[in-house]
Design a protein around this nucleic acid. Structure first.
Lengths: 365, 365
DNA sequence: TCAGTGAATGAAAGCGCATTCACTTTAGGT
DNA sequence: ACCTAAAGTGAATGCGCTTTCATTCACTGA
């Protein structure tokens, strides 16, 4: 691991100028075959690898796309592991569960590969001032950011110099940012799922569990719920029946308890703003001897792997996170190749309701 | 997206030299608070983001670690999707299945984050000469490579200038490469699993299905199988009973057919070198009315998510791929911080046998 | 008041490559 | 053999930043 050889070394070794060495790599056809071979031989012998940094600096482009996401790793992973233990013996079940970020990464990686880009990924790690974004932004040709990872304002500054697409977050309404956005039809999905419960299963006493932290996703879902209820002539307040803090299984379990213990008639259906909570609720209900879906229907949102493994399998709304990753790359690439005008695009990806046992549709496993 | 502002712009705007601007970012304490504020204000106003390339060039380090893996994406994804359809209704099941690469990525990302590194990932894409490795190697401080992604020889050249760790591949025996290696105890796992079938289930007529393409992993597994058999006084030849081409479900299904149709006594257990094939075999056996595990036991290797979803659930050996990713980063970081001598390290991660229904241990889901 | 200190800042030299422009071969034509 | 166009090659410059090294300042103690 001595000092790495550079173009100068290769040039000297093969008796040409550094310009020629560079050409051998950038544009082989512009160098006579014989010369080229000589250079390549020298490079091989010296163990020369072109410096991406120098290259990027000189050519003003890196061939790398980026992805920034928030640091929601470890807590989630653990709560999923805890859940998996239910299965009976398999520890480390979290290994099998794909997080959002994994899906998006996969989508982006595939698409990036197709276009000849590599992918740089980084989670925020509650970093200081320049931390995350600077790290990524400074090293890529363009990048995607999961909503609420870094202040929109900051992104906007950056988007003046390179393409930035925001994932799963709506355009700022007050501010009207100029970023590209790719969202998921949260409201549509929750509306459709709610409609299903009401019309197809004849349920009318519904309870919605949302989140205290304000997330546009969760708000949109609740909005869809409200719309479906109103459309069916069911009264609903402007707020979810319950708001929890973290949207974890533990909170979901607690929420189910709270809802069941409330005075008045027991709800016929518990709608949760995500799968994690719904799974937690499933546990609570089982413990209390409340049958699902006979006594009460339960639904989630997201379509995580776990939703299919629990019993009864969870009815939910699947988000196309992988596709979102792919679309993000396509969009970035288009921007980089100069397509599109200056106008920011917003893209809304459709979701699909997955009907499974927990709402009474029992079939699929 | 006009020309991006540079240190020069910020320096001019704030009335200092570029050295000071640089210091504000690299070592804030060395600049008077008042000056620092002035610089940061200018930076904000201009939308300045330090160029990672220039930085890397000047400081000879990137703060990025890399991962290269082979391009086994799409074929696998599709075969898994096909399998998922068995479940009955959920399309897009491949979305829920984590590939090896996903696990490793996750492990590496977590560990890298802890150490303040970002992660650059790239799949080979059967690239030309410089393609993959050059792309990654030139942009990172060190990186991991999945075995058989690129010729060891090439890696070795690169490892002269930066840390390289090979994942899931043994050290070259003839050649004795100087790379760091992290492997999985394939032989141990298959030996233990085989022992389990023989001793705990009393099975003695076993059949092993390997792969035609020579992969050190698969060879090690077979070796473990042979060892366990010999230890139990069971005769086995030097070759698997069957070698298939691709280790896919389709091939596994075919293999089961072939094995069942062979003259002589039917085997009591079918051991496959990976889960994919074992799952395929499960389908064949069901179709033919052969009961698992009553008529014949079936085992896989890998512990993919699908192995738990099929019926009966597949007994297999779980590989700690995520942990492998983490260890890889730890190793790289240690190398970068100058720990370790020059001697290459080899690390062997333990695997665990997962006993499920398909071998007769029926319990867990 | 003045040399002596340490802190804050500036000047300048690269880091390794791409690229333009000018120059030298070589091939093609007569 | 001589000229022209095309193909190959080299010299030199700059990409945006980090990093000595030197310089300037504001103080300190004598």
């Amino acid at each position: 691991m001595s000092t790495a050889p550079t173009v100068y070394d290769v040039a000297e070794q093969s008796g040409v100028s550094i310009a020629t060495v560079s050409r051998v790599y950038r544009n082989p056809d512009s160098v006579r075959a014989q010369t080229r071979e000589r250079v390549l031989a020298a490079a091989r012998e010296l163990g020369y690898v072109p410096s991406g940094n120098a290259r990027g600096l000189a050519s003003r482009s890196t061939g790398v796309l980026g992805l920034c996401f928030p640091d929601y790793s470890d807590p989630d992973a653990e709560s999923e592991a805890e859940a998996g233990a239910t299965g009976g013996g398999d520890e480390a079940d979290d290994d099998a569960a794909m997080l959002y970020s994994d899906q998006i990464i996969r989508g982006m990686e595939r698409a990036a590969r197709r276009h000849g880009y590599a992918l740089l990924i980084a989670a925020s790690l509650k970093g200081g001032p320049e931390s995350l974004v600077a790290k990524v932004a400074g090293r890529v040709d363009g990048f995607a950011v999961l909503a609420r990872t870094v202040p929109t304002e900051e992104l906007e500054v950056i988007s003046r110099r390179q393409p930035v697409v925001m994932l799963a977050g709506p355009r700022e309404t007050d501010h009207l940012d100029h970023l590209d956005h790719i969202e998921v039809a949260n409201a549509d999905g929750q509306r459709e799922l709610t409609r299903h419960l009401i019309e197809d299963h004849g349920l009318r006493r519904l309870a919605y569990v949302g989140s205290a932290e304000e997330s546009p996703d969760v708000e949109a879902r609740f909005r869809g719920y409200v719309e479906a209820c109103r459309a069916a002539g069911i009264e609903v307040g402007p707020e979810p029946d319950l708001r929890v803090g973290m949207m974890t299984q533990a909170e979901g379990a607690r929420a189910a308890d709270a809802l069941l213990d409330r005075a008045g008639e027991r709800p016929e259906a518990l709608l949760f703003a995500n799968d994690q909570m719904a799974v937690g609720a499933l546990h609570t209900l089982e413990r209390r001897g409340v049958r699902v879906p006979d006594d009460v229907a339960v639904t989630g949102f997201d379509g995580i792997a776990l939703s299919r493994l629990v019993r009864p399998a969870l009815t939910t709304v699947r988000q196309p996170m992988r596709r979102m990753g792919e679309e993000a790359v396509e969009l970035l690439v288009r921007r980089l190749t100069g397509a599109h005008g200056g106008d920011p695009v917003s893209m809304m990806l459709p979701v699909s309701v997955v009907r499974r046992g927990s709402c009474g549709c029992g079939v699929a496993g």
